[in-house]
Design a protein around this nucleic acid. Sequence first.
DNA 1: TATACAATGTAGCGGTCGCTACAGATTCGG
DNA 2: CCGAATCTGTAGCGACCGCTACATTGTATA
Lengths: 185, 185
Amino acid sequence: MAPNPEKREALEARLAAHVLAHGLGQTSLRQLAAAAGTSDRMLLYYYADKAALLGAVLTRLAADMANGLAAALPAGDRLPAADLLARVGALAAQPGFRPYMSLWAEIAAEAGRGAQPFAMIATTIAGGFVYWVDERLAEPDPVRRRDLAALLIAVIDGAALLAPLGDGAIATRAMGALQGLLAAS
Amino acid sequence: MAPNPEKREALEARLAAHVLAHGLGQTSLRQLAAAAGTSDRMLLYYYADKAALLGAVLTRLAADMANGLAAALPAGDRLPAADLLARVGALAAQPGFRPYMSLWAEIAAEAGRGAQPFAMIATTIAGGFVYWVDERLAEPDPVRRRDLAALLIAVIDGAALLAPLGDGAIATRAMGALQGLLAAS
DNA sequence: TATACAATGTAGCGGTCGCTACAGATTCGG
DNA sequence: CCGAATCTGTAGCGACCGCTACATTGTATA
């Protein structure tokens, strides 16, 4: 019960890749084990139970996404809201980023019913999102900046939820409309 | 295989109430049957299979929500975007309406992975939302009205996703910020 | 009253689920 | 080289899953 942290790390990376690619619906221990090239028996050797495993994997994926965001748009320079929204919208629509948004929607939906470990992780991730935007918004008034950050996150999340439906036009139009509003204000 | 439509109707109402209250995670045939006061055997007497049952129940709940929306805000009069957003935000936050928003988030998240019957139903519901807003927006330019409607729906959906997390402040702030922007434009 | 059909109970099939017991293998410090 | 600790395979438990076979009851009509 004191497994090698390096092997655990390598295993976790493979588990994270599978969850990212296939979503929360394909996370039985046997499915995860097959994807990671091991057995369900081993998963429960490295993690106390399934909830602990999912918690670790989702926390890791949240950190991955945060790193991706930070790398794509360094924290130093602040942008006007319209520009920042355009940048983030382009980022969220990138093929490499879409799976994170889909997974985020799944986690948030689960959290909406209060299910653990999703509720706790979702709250952390959402807070991280708002902080990330807040840090990059060129708006002197901190209260207004905080509210603007919340607005950007809400519309991005809404767009992420709506993008896979139909032809995705609703999401595109919503992003465009808010950019127009922000640019004109 | 030609069951009484009245009994089927009464059964469906009970099934819908259970799905609305407990979400997509509690929809095994045995759970549904227990909630409806019958047996899994009977559910498959009234519906071809589980997908057909869920499709019927979710379609019914979507219609219920649409009726609730239409009743709360008659189609006749059109409002400025800021006012309409305030009204819809208050509506979506009502205790009687929150379960619909949670369920909608679950359906949309499932649809994001392409799972049927969710993908089809989610597209229909989202289209209905946009149409409902579009019909009530006081904006003469139809293109701009369509884009504004998409924006309102995206931010409402985003707020619905974020409201159950933490203290719900992100959702509240996002709604307030957009109302401010719309009022000032 | 006989018959046709809707409605329902009982029982179980084959499958997946999370999880565990137990034993064997591997590795590495003394 | 031995013993302890880490690692892994095999096998299965009890629960739940969607779904089905089969028999039986209720009911309405001819």
